[in-house]
Design a protein around this nucleic acid. Structure first.
Length: 436
RNA sequence: GCCCCGGUAGUGUAGUGGCCUAUCAUGAAGCCCUGUCGAGGCUUCGACUUGGGUUCGAAUCCCAGCCGGGGCGCCA
């Protein structure tokens, strides 16, 4: 590692460094100039530290630093001194200063201003916004829970794969897709890796997962939707039924939730506490859900998917029993995609995982018989010839299989109680936002 | 796709027909100050989304455009 600009991060400096020379680097968060003495707060990836500038001792350094715009980038070599008056317990007295970058003024978004900014302004200036510890904490936790997901899935012998995001035709029907020109052909951005991860079940890879991008051209305008989002997609072969899939999903969520609860520094910054849920999660059949909702005077009719209001209501009902996580199982066949395995005449082996009244994952046992699959395609108003490449994977030996898709941003939103899904992705793509 | 709402200095706001030469805070520029940590004090700078209309008079009322936020549907 290059140590020219930095020998220590702010948090790495300890009493054994006192009275010796250190080199620190970061952004100028604030300068408090008292006349003959000034204090400069320098922020790095781990926190902040104070540079103390004495006009009499080092007049050139004093003048140079005191006149620097906030958010400029510095590397400073100086003497580290113990001082109880300073928050960190030490201060750095600069001897040599390298200004690596001078920030323009005024800042379009104050990193430590005493005024709030609109979310839109924050997103317009996302790079500055991401300098705030409470914003950064979300992405440090995101990294941690994804690492936990990798570790858990690999421990269960899942293989990480990557399937194409530029695809030839409609994958599942339903949602609108972004069109693009692929040389002389029309192509689309994948709305999910569904058909590809299923195809892989016919290869012998048996258990796969993908941290996948979903592109959806729906013109929704809500706090819970993105047009570009990410998900953990899992597919597994040789399963007995969807219960095996649900067991993996709940353990995955548990592993991620547990890892998040260990991010104490980030949670402190966000002022959140995380309670790890107990396994197994409650299973509640769709029929049972409809009954419960009707008892609460919901107008829901059997056969349709839950409305946002119904989902919320069910969340409240479960909350009364102290349940945050629950599976809704055995959905009506008609409310699930064509590849969902039927269970009897009207039900399916499809399920959703709900967290506090919000859907964070949905999955199922899939159909592996090509005849039944073709029949279901037609029943859903789709044309088998549009799915020839997909159906081909089923013709030459396809084992029983199932899986799920798990929205990462939705998960984080629930995990950290954030009110807008855009908080959970670095550079959100929504109905109107294409930059930054 | 349907339906609601909003747009005032770099940032966040006050303003409901004349008291607006537009409030306050934050910020920026400058000055004073040797222990600040939301430092303090003083000075200065900087804004009504666009185009029509109503009116003696419009930031304020009406219409249209542009830009944006949100609810529902759909879904992760």
């Amino acid at each position: 590692m290059c140590r020219m600009y930095r020998s220590h991060y702010s948090k790495e400096i300890s009493p054994q460094d006192y009275n010796s020379s250190v080199t620190v680097a970061g952004w100028v968060e604030d300068v408090r100039n008292l006349g003959s003495i000034a204090f400069l707060i320098l922020r790095d990836a781990q926190g902040t530290l104070q540079l103390t500038l004495l006009k009499k001792k080092t007049p050139e350094v004093f003048e140079q630093l005191v006149s620097l715009p906030r958010e400029s980038v510095l590397s400073v070599k100086g003497l580290c001194k113990e001082n109880e008056k300073v928050r960190n317990g030490y201060e750095v007295l600069p001897e040599t200063v390298t200004v690596l970058s001078t920030a323009e003024t005024p800042l379009p978004l104050g990193v430590v201003d005493r005024v709030e900014s609109d979310f839109d302004t924050r997103l317009d200036n996302r790079v500055l916004d991401l300098r705030k510890p409470e914003v950064q904490a979300i992405f440090r936790i995101r990294d941690a829970v994804l690492a936990a997901a990798d570790e858990y899935l690999r421990s269960q012998h899942f293989l990480e794969v990557h399937t194409p995001k530029i695809i030839a035709s409609s994958s599942e029907g339903g949602t609108d897709m972004f069109k693009l020109q692929y040389f002389e052909k029309q192509a689309f951005l994948a709305q999910s890796p569904q058909l590809y991860k299923q195809s892989l079940m016919a290869t012998g890879l048996d258990r796969v997962y993908e941290i996948a991008w979903y592109f959806r051209a729906e013109e929704h305008n809500t706090r819970r939707h993105l047009n570009e989002s990410t998900a953990i997609d899992v597919e597994m072969a040789f399963i007995k039924d969807e219960e095996e899939v649900m067991a993996i999903l709940e353990q995955l969520v548990h592993a991620m939730w547990t890892r998040a609860s260990e991010c104490s520094a980030e949670l402190a910054v966000l002022q959140k506490t995380i309670t790890v849920p107990h396994l197994p999660f409650t299973r509640i059949a769709y029929d049972n859900v409809v009954e419960k909702l009707q008892q609460q005077n919901s107008p829901i009719q059997w056969g349709v998917d839950l409305s946002t209001e119904d989902e919320r209501l069910l969340g409240d009902i479960m909350k009364e029993d102290g349940i945050d996580f629950y599976f809704i199982t055995k959905y009506p066949l008609a409310s699930k995609p064509f590849y969902t395995m039927p269970a009897g005449q009207k039900h399916s082996r499809g399920f959703d995982l709900e967290c506090k009244g919000v859907e964070i994952s949905s999955g199922s046992q899939r159909i592996h018989d090509v005849g039944l699959l073709t029949e279901r395609l037609k029943a859903c108003g789709l044309h088998p010839k549009d799915f020839e490449a997909y159906l081909k994977a089923f013709r030459y030996g396809m084992p029983p299989h199932g899986g799920f898709g798990f929205g990462i941003e939705r998960f984080l939103m629930e995990l950290l109680d954030l009110s807008n899904i855009r908080e959970c992705i670095l550079f959100p793509r929504d109905r109107t936002r294409l930059t930054p």
